[in-house]
Design a protein around this nucleic acid. Structure first.
Lengths: 161, 161
DNA sequence: GTCCTTGCAAATAGTTTGCACGGAT
DNA sequence: ATCCGTGCAAACTATTTGCAAGGAC
């Protein structure tokens, strides 16, 4: 993990930015919560645990910077909040998401899967693809097996990030 | 177009809602701007031209209602605004979008394209897909040919949308 | 009357911005 | 001495909500 931090630092430097303590703290939180899909507020609260003096605006500014540098991706699942997701190092494309409409969980799919589709789009629509967003909404494997028990269960929300 | 309005009316009635004048005006605007991807504010301004007494909150409430009934889809291209898109009648799935990072245009792809991908996701991740969102970001055919004019390029002009 | 729906205004939520200060070069 | 980055508060934008009033049945 230190290695990735180091590389991010270089990436920042190469663009004329510094890895300030606040930015480092923010990146660390992102690295430690790679699986989650944190909102800016989530990140802020987590950063605050280690660096209580940080301001919310700084977190927003850092996340925006990281998004500009393609270090993180800003995503939006339709609940009015932006979420931030570290890009896999060296990944050609952004990964996909499975959003469960029952428990709210968000899982990731690292496989590309879209190769053929993109070829068709590029050819048929003369569209030069730079990036994509693919999200499936449905019932996740957890809720699927739960539902099989035919239990008219109620509020046991899963992690939901 | 009247026919679609009629069906939407029935759809509302079947769920215990009425097609009030305000709702009708809103739906008409959506029907007349099917190609566009209007924000709530856009819809509001357009509805206001014909029905000046309507309130913004009513438009929001109507759009939310239509989204609940799956008559429209709420989409989000990452600029903090929700946009509303009429669902194709009888379409099993939501259509896809091509967002141009150069000129900001948004084109639609009605073809499904995701059949194979969805089969894989359902099988490998035990995820029951109910809906999806697929957006490509890149350079549209218009900007492609524009950029090509000064360069050496040849026969590839599309007219999709 | 009862239930829905509406317009308006106020409230909220998320995010951005202005500004003066502080630290590193 | 300059430049970048920060914290704070205020500003802004998009959206939601409370409420009194109007209309259909």
């Amino acid at each position: 993990m230190e290695k990735r931090l180091e590389r991010i630092k270089k990436h920042l430097h190469s663009q004329g930015y510094k890895l300030t303590p606040q930015r480092e703290a923010t990146v660390r939180v992102l690295l430690e919560h790679e699986e989650d899909h944190l909102s800016a507020e989530d990140v802020y609260l987590l950063v605050k645990e280690k660096s209580p003096e940080i301001g919310l605006a700084t977190v927003y500014r850092t996340l925006e910077l990281l998004a500009d540098l393609k270090i993180v991706d800003k995503i939006n699942f339709g609940d009015g909040v932006s979420r931030f997701d570290l890009r896999q190092e060296g990944a050609a494309h952004f990964h996909h998401h499975l959003v469960c409409i029952e428990c709210g969980s968000v899982d990731e799919i690292q496989e590309d899967l879209l190769g053929d589709v993109e070829a068709i789009v590029e050819r048929d629509f003369n569209f030069r693809i730079k990036d994509h967003r693919l999200t499936f909404h449905g019932i996740c494997y957890r809720c699927n097996s739960k539902g099989n028990k035919e239990n008219k269960n109620e509020s046991q929300n899963a992690e939901t990030v």
